[in-house]
Design a protein around this nucleic acid. Structure first.
Lengths: 241, 241
DNA sequence: CGGTGTCAATGGTCTGACCACTTCTTCTTT
DNA sequence: AAAGAAGAAGTGGTCAGACCATTGACACCG
């Protein structure tokens, strides 16, 4: 009944109790008061601060944990407690993959977004890529050049190629989202790889596409790289459908 | 003590209690005993079945909810209870928003990705938007037309305009990512709104940009809409920097 | 000086209770 | 007999308070 003077807007808020906690954490993160590596208040303290039970706080923490936002460990001192996670892009990738796998998004929708992001990636890569970064994508091309390569290994190298180009873009957010979406389509694409008939023709098209993209990026031709990557993604998906 | 004869492998398992529940649900889903639309046992029953407390069951349910796997609603009968879910989206938006905020990406990087996604959104919107969807974005424009509008309200309506266009694209993934990125920049943009000097000039530019985009989308001119939205975003950010 | 044990703080768990809401059943009234 | 009202039962949502295991800091004793 008293206190609350520090956080009245949250303590008075209606709605589910654990959502009050989530909203509070969201606000703290978005406003910059909580950053990666920082510790959340202890569960008991947070419960008192927001006028909810500790059980409600714990349910919110579980939600944040499931999303990879925080990590909890027991014990006193700096090592214990709940801390904001570096949110390795794995969390994004995991969640995107889960959603796509559950057919929540039509594959065509995913393709559209993927085209938009990869066009951005290769454009930035053509402008910013270092020779070392281009070596990484070239290595993926070399792997795929093996005429006896298994379809799964080819798919992995294919994924690695696109992720490597995204990494070469020098834009971390573009890389993370591009990689997450390509990664989320790894299994659906592999499934099609396995059931397609004209495998030899398709894989040859893919190889040519990759090499053309790599060449355009290497010589810094952003526009051509954008055009090539869009054609590459769309025609590959069409051939597999 | 007793019982457990039905699920000994789970009831006897060590490790965190809520993970026992998660493992049980995983097993039921993977084995096909639980499918989309099915109901989980009631929390009290599940707690008794797995020999854990109801609080542990609830923490597991929160985890599943955060992952979008289940949906809960109160009440007796078929309408109440926790059911296996098909399609959530909040989880993705929330995670992406936090991801952008936490990773502390350079704002320029975020702008690049935002341009790529919003170009996609307005292109799809120009091709697919219904009059009802265009009404929503028009309403945001009307709100911003108020000459006495507060800067925060203007920013909210601005966000709403871009999100509405993304929604009109008819591509759920594009909408979620576009909305998440625009929302992740809500606070930084608001901060600039508050400290900018030539507010009147800037806001007039923004209004003209919105109206031009809305007009292009309405008449189905995808290419012009793409061009306009890119110019709009880049020039607005430049004016605020 | 160095080990050693106490102590405090943390997350993890449990119990048992109450609430708000929804549905189904049963009984009363027309 | 039909319609409606009252209540019983079951659901998730929340709370308070307790205990446990783990961890780190600090005072104490050798």
């Amino acid at each position: 009944m008293d206190a609350d003077s520090l956080q009245p807007s949250f303590a008075e808020r209606p709605g589910r109790a654990f959502e009050v906690v989530l909203a509070w954490v969201d606000e703290q993160i978005l406003s910059g008061d909580l950053a990666v590596g920082d510790q959340l208040p202890a569960e008991r303290e947070l419960a008192r601060l927001l006028n909810v039970s500790r059980a409600a706080v714990r349910e919110a923490v579980r939600t944040l944990q499931a999303q990879g936002v925080v990590r909890s460990s027991v014990g006193a001192g700096a090592a214990g407690g709940t801390t904001i996670n570096a949110l390795p892009s794995d969390a994004l990738t995991r969640l995107l993959r889960l959603h796509v796998a559950l057919a929540n998004f039509p594959h065509e929708d995913v393709i559209e977004v993927r085209v938009a992001l990869e066009r951005l990636s290769v454009r930035l890569a053509a402008q910013n890529a270092t020779p070392e970064q281009l070596d990484v994508s070239q290595k993926a091309i070399d792997v795929m050049a093996d005429p006896d390569i298994e379809r799964e290994a080819f798919n992995d190298a294919d994924t690695a190629f696109h992720v490597a180009l995204a990494a070469a873009a020098g834009n971390r957010l573009a890389m993370d989202t591009t990689a997450a979406i390509r990664e989320s389509m790894r299994l659906p694409i592999l499934d099609r790889f396995r059931h397609v008939h004209a495998w030899d023709d398709i894989v040859e098209d893919l190889r040519r596409g990759h090499e053309a993209i790599q060449a355009a990026v290497t010589r810094g031709d952003a526009e051509e790289a954008e055009r090539l990557v869009e054609t590459h993604i769309r025609s590959a998906w069409h051939a597999l459908s």
